[in-house]
Design a protein around this nucleic acid. Sequence first.
DNA 1: TCAATATATGAACATTTAATCATATATTCA
DNA 2: TGAATATATGATTAAATGTTCATATATTGA
Lengths: 103, 103
Amino acid sequence: MSYERNERYGSDEEMIGDMAEVFRVFGDRTRLLILMALSTKEECVGDLTEELGMTQSAVSHHLTILRQSRLVKTRREGKSIFYSLADDHVEDILNIGLEHINE
Amino acid sequence: MSYERNERYGSDEEMIGDMAEVFRVFGDRTRLLILMALSTKEECVGDLTEELGMTQSAVSHHLTILRQSRLVKTRREGKSIFYSLADDHVEDILNIGLEHINE
DNA sequence: TCAATATATGAACATTTAATCATATATTCA
DNA sequence: TGAATATATGATTAAATGTTCATATATTGA
């Protein structure tokens, strides 16, 4: 395997930086729990908060990070905001991480 | 997809924690560069150090982290220690991260 | 055995990160 | 409009992380 520069990136540095950032976002227990919860169904912030047993604020901060990394997308319905995985890549990454630790 | 408990793990908590830890290790620019360098060939610490343009100490600290996470393995040859990727999973994870940012 | 070379380790420091608390911003419904 | 509910945001703090510097531990060959 060789890691060639992609057209979308002006430099390798930039590409590596983005890659590291994505992995860093996955590298948190709470965010993994959120992503796994969302892998079966979309869910609103309140339900996620209850499920995770942490403060609403903490969950919301993590959701912001996940949103900024484009790993999740949102949909508003009345007062609630429903979160779901942005695309199939997210599950692929979760699965490969799972495979790795279960090797 | 559902994330069921694996036999190897006493609890989901433990499994999630391990997964987060693996991703966290990938979530660093320098470590990604090391892993990518090692994806084509084994390499000793000195060469990696030169290639990365950082101090030998910094590189060594990162290598320790990679070793502890079992992402790389080592082989001594005289005074040099050669590092290489531990298994195919490592490249799989790199590739999927690369795919994600190039989506 | 001693000097030279390659690598690892520990302590210190600066930066980043996650959690919390308080509060702001929607949205609904009476 | 105003109260209630759901979510987001900003400041603060404690803990984790990456780098550096100094030094320790192998290994080789003279």
